[in-house]
Design a protein around this nucleic acid. Structure first.
Length: 791
DNA sequence: CACAGGTCTCTTTTT
DNA sequence: GAGACCTGTG
């Protein structure tokens, strides 16, 4: 019996198709990693391909790691010759060797999004761009989008066509790239873009890698953007042995430039491509798959497919709507605790998933209270913490004095009296002498008017020199970090800054030192450059240990590619998931992306899926009342165990709820429920249907009725809720019992004409309604005076 | 000039 | 509710 006998027919077909382009459409849990790893084994084993000639690109470091291990198990000897890496590490390895051809130094540094923002601030200042009108983030987004699509600065400049915003973006783009270049730095997008540029400009370099990588496979192909596609296309262009694996239904990174067209158009670019669909699922019960299938069926732009399994129906999906986020957290934690006590599951069998990182906190608090071990995966990046960024900035300066962002970050940290005025003088000098900031610092004696600061600058330069020579002598990264702490007395600085957090921050720095030590132990040739690179490209998620006996908490995005016996998805509410923006957007694609995310979440579960939501939830400082997510209602009701309040306009005889799921939404219903304005708000089912395509959303209650000092804690929350309902019971006569319109409705006003309701905030005496009038723009008014009428 | 405090804004997901 | 940013004060 060979290793290939465990494959099903479709998988086998994919494994033996080694020559020429291949598109594998692999549904969730259909054994795509297994197929890919066996295919690699087959190449080496049966086709006599040199492992050296194989490149396997994955999306995350974690996925790469897993694939590497699995290939190793199958192939054994020689497997370490295969490049199994992410897009970014692949490109980094190439760029470290050849980027000098593009005029960068090979020890270039990587800028994360914080660094990018810092650069963009400088750019705006220099170009006199008013950051009130043009937010740094907006400009950076525009630039990132351009890079994702391989639009160069000059391309962008030519495409502005007098569009004022685009002209500004183009100017910023040029200056931004100049500054990065000066700092010998690349941002994340550049890592891909520069590699493509390198290949296009230097055919001999491309040819080398084409010869090297005769067999290429790309995992999570649905998440690639145009630049990544071009990179792969170039590499594969000579031998055309390109195998891509993806699932258009799991494309959830459009916001980051992922182009779903890449998967839909693959056959167009490679007409000779073979297409194989893997639809048999080995992970979940049929119940869970049916739910996933019915939800995703509501999307229009997708390749038709349906998952099936031989596992059997299993347990029903559970659904529960709780009063508020605290009750929701309680419910989940109780549930986990009960199941573990019964001996059904252990902690690591669970996962609690959510749409936004902010939701983690509530659940975390309850877990702490119950003493249940847990792990919040992702969220705030370890390397984004201020003290860690300081340390990294020092390391970058030691390694590459050209990195201006890093240098400016630490030039006066800890305080050494090199203030803004001195910095300006240094910057001016650097500008005139066409030198870097650090270069200017080396020449303080030539700069006029620095006064006492000159000595301080010399002192700083000396510090860096000493650290540099320490590193050269000792070669230990952990060593320089310790020396750095000692020489700068960074600890005192932290205590001066904020006594309370200083201890935690020092602990973080210790953790960094541990990471440095670990890096030096794990690598044959550890270098400062290598460590900084790892720091820039490795995420929390990659280090997460899911085997540990802890309940993992993470966003649905982070959960992609993982599986758990028992999955909770919290916050199933319209306005949260799908998010507010997607619900309000005219762009159907946005909602479809959210739906794909729901599909990803649902298909993480092997045995049991539990969906929860809250009637009320604090969001951005306001208590929002959100209706049950449309995605819950898109699941056939017979699959669900749990009461879902029926919408009035649902067919009474219908067992399924997804009849209306396609084009309509009954969002808003639960808010009526809570506000007791009841289902008899005078809307005929026809009325609702007519307006339902426009999402009716969230009435809001201002949290102001709670005492100012109230911390969001369970009992206080109850009080707060009581006070809200108290207000509602004893409402002054002026306040209407309910409003006939809700968010998203078209209304008319005597003076301002027609408009759309943007939000409704319930205040003590009245509803504050924000309306976007067609002719007058946004107006805020009180419901009892405005006499708005629903159209 | 530094800092405390008030105001304003806010989608969300991350290699 | 949190973070960024601005402004007034000592």
């Amino acid at each position: 019996m060979s290793i290939y006998d465990t494959l099903n027919d479709k998988q086998k077909e994919a494994v033996v198709h080694t020559e020429g382009p291949l598109l594998i459409l692999a549904g969730a849990g259909s054994g795509k990693t297994k197929t890919l790893t066996h295919r690699i084994a087959y190449l080496i084993d049966k086709m006599d391909v040199n492992p050296w000639n194989i490149l396997a690109i994955t999306f995350t470091n974690k996925a790469a790691e897993e694939m590497k291990n699995r290939v190793m198990d199958l192939v054994g000897f020689g497997a370490d010759q295969i490049w199994v890496t992410t897009f970014h590490s692949t490109c980094m390895r190439i760029l470290r060797r050849h980027i000098d051809r593009l005029g960068y130094d090979t020890n270039f540094t990587i800028y994360d999004s914080d660094d990018q923002k810092t650069v963009m601030k400088n750019v705006c200042k220099k170009l006199n761009i008013d950051t009130k009108n043009f937010k740094e983030k907006t400009i950076l987004n525009a630039i990132s989008k351009a890079k994702d699509n391989l639009i160069s600065v000059s391309d962008y400049e030519m495409s502005t066509l007098g569009d004022f915003s685009k002209v500004v973006y183009a100017k910023a783009y040029r200056e931004y790239q100049d500054q990065l270049k000066k700092s010998n730095a690349l941002d994340f997008d550049d890592i891909i873009v520069k590699t493509v540029e390198l290949f296009r400009q230097f055919p001999e370099v491309l040819d080398y890698y084409q010869e090297r990588f005769k067999y290429i496979s790309v995992d999570e192909y649905q998440d690639t953007n145009k630049a990544q596609f071009e990179l792969v296309r170039l590499l594969a262009d000579k031998y055309r042995n390109l195998c891509v694996v993806g699932d258009d239904d799991q494309s959830i990174y459009k916001f980051r430039g992922a182009n779903i067209r890449n998967i839909l158009d693959f056959e167009e670019y490679y007409p000779e491509a073979k297409v194989i669909k893997l639809e048999q699922n080995y992970r979940s019960t049929q119940t869970i798959l049916n739910a996933a299938n019915s939800v995703i069926a509501n999307n229009v732009s997708r390749k038709e497919k349906a998952l099936w399994t031989e596992i059997g129906d299993g347990k029903k999906i559970r659904f529960s709507q709780l009063e508020n986020a605290y009750d929701e957290a309680n419910f989940i934690v109780d549930d986990i605790s009960t199941a573990v006590r019964r001996g059904d599951y252990t902690y690591s069998d669970f996962a609690v998933l959510y749409r936004t990182n902010a939701q983690a906190r509530n659940i975390e608090e309850r877990l702490v209270l119950r003493g249940i071990p847990y792990n919040v995966i992702g969220g705030t990046n370890f390397y984004a913490r201020a003290e860690i960024k300081d340390m990294i900035a020092y390391l970058k300066t030691i390694e590459n004095g050209q990195d201006e962002v890093a240098l400016r970050r630490i030039i006066n940290v800890p305080k050494r009296s090199i203030g803004a005025a001195s910095l300006d003088k240094l910057m001016d000098f650097a500008e005139i002498s066409d030198d870097t900031l650090y270069g200017a610092m080396l020449n303080v004696d030539q700069i006029m008017g620095l006064g006492k600061a000159a000595q301080k600058i010399e002192g700083f330069v000396n510090l860096i020199r000493v650290l540099r020579s320490t590193y050269d002598a000792v070669g230990s990264i952990a060593g320089i970090l310790k020396k750095l702490l000692e020489m700068t007395d960074y600890e005192s600085y932290l205590y001066d800054q904020d006594e309370e957090s200083a201890e935690d921050r020092m602990a973080n720095i210790d953790e960094l030192i541990n990471k440095a030590t670990a890096y030096e132990e794990e690598n044959d040739e550890p270098t400062l450059t290598g460590f900084l690179e790892e720091v820039a490209l490795v995420s929390d998620l990659d280090n997460a240990d899911l085997e540990e006996a802890r309940v993992p908490l993470m966003t649905i995005h982070s959960s992609k590619g993982l599986e758990f016996k028992c999955v909770y998805i919290a916050g199933m509410e319209d306005g949260l998931f799908p998010g507010y923006g997607a619900v309000m957007s005219d762009d159907r694609e946005e909602l479809e992306e959210e739906r794909r995310l729901a599909y990803v979440g649902i298909t993480r579960a092997r045995e049991q899926l539990i969906l929860t939501c809250a009637k009320m939830r604090m969001m951005r400082g306001e208590t929002q009342i959100n209706p049950i997510s449309r995605f819950v209602k898109e699941i056939p009701r017979n699959l669900i165990d749990g009461y879902i309040p029926k919408s009035k306009y649902e067919r009474e005889d219908s067992e399924y709820s997804y009849d209306y799921g396609r084009n309509t939404s009954d969002a808003g219903i639960s808010s009526y429920d809570v506000r007791r304005s009841s289902y008899d708000s005078g809307l005929s089912s026809y009325d609702v249907r007519k307006s339902a395509a426009e999402p009716r959303l969230t009435a809001r209650l201002k949290s102001a009725s709670a005492p100012a000092s109230v911390k969001p804690y369970y009992s206080d929350q109850i009080k707060q809720l009581n006070s809200i309902s108290g207000i509602q019971k004893g409402m002054p006569a002026a306040k209407l019992d309910s409003l006939e319109y809700s968010t998203g409705d078209k209304v008319t006003h005597k003076k301002f004409g027609t408009g759309t309701v943007l939000s409704i905030v319930s205040e003590t005496r009245d509803y504050k309604v924000t309306v976007d009038f067609d002719a007058y723009g946004k107006k805020i008014m009180y419901a009892s005076f405005a006499k708005l009428e629903k159209l």
